[in-house]
Amino acid sequence: MTEHRPILTFIAHLTLILGIALVAFPIWVTFVAASHEAARMVQVPLPLLPGDQFFVNLREVFVNGIAGAGGIPVGLMMMNSLIVALMITFGKIAISLISAFAIVYFKFPFRMAFFWMIFITLMLPVEVRILPTFEVVANLGMLNSYWGLSIPLIASATATFLFRQVFLTMPDEMLEAARVDGAGPLRFFWDILLPLSRTNIAALFVIMFIYGWNQYLWPLLITTDRSMVTVVMGIKQMLEAAEQAPQWNLIMMTSLLAMLPPVAVVIAMQSLFVRGLTETEK
């Protein structure tokens, strides 16, 4: 790419700018809507420049919530979402690490059968098994609890499979060197396998956090208590707030807030995340 053709450069940049605009425009609209009064948001045309009500709206949703939707403060919703997403993420990573460790490093009867069983569950997303899962969770008395919100989503074939592949790339000689050094299975796991899978763990953390944060159907199904509402369901409930026109400024403010934690996680883990997906050298 050492050629300099002004027209090509121009077209390339134009395409890129258009792409960015396409992605950024909805977010801009959200931001603009979140900074106006409710009354302005029902007038046509919709504003394209920010208003002056941003911090007023922010305090309103964060502390009071939307009265028509039950008046649950968004701060509480976000706390719920955060707790659930973190429980799902850590749970998934822990369980997958351990099961991949078992499948790769231990010889036990029906090892491959277990691996394929886990692998086949990849084909069964939450939605497919939602009724039996609800039954189990209800019987265990976990409705309206963080446990009920997170545990059924923790088992993860994807993550198990990913860690299995990671472990398979570890040279056998390293395991043997550790055995000669006297490291038992648990020490090997903690001292060698975990630090070496660090980047993969980070990559998975990002993916799984977003997965947990974005859960909608499952929380909707098992939470009836208003104090357990997560932010993604909360937004939907705001739309259906009884006997009121939707308060777009507050809804958009909530959406904006709901976007922040995933963005923060991606930014914080960005460098590790990229290395986790691309690094091959062990």
């Binding site: 040279p171 000689e173 390293m174 043997e176 060197a177 550790a178 001292d191 060698i192 630090p195 070496l196 660090r198 050298e281 062990k282």
Partner: peptide
Amino acid sequence: FQNYALYPH
């Protein structure tokens, strides 16, 4: 070992 098998981390 032939490939040294050092712990890279």
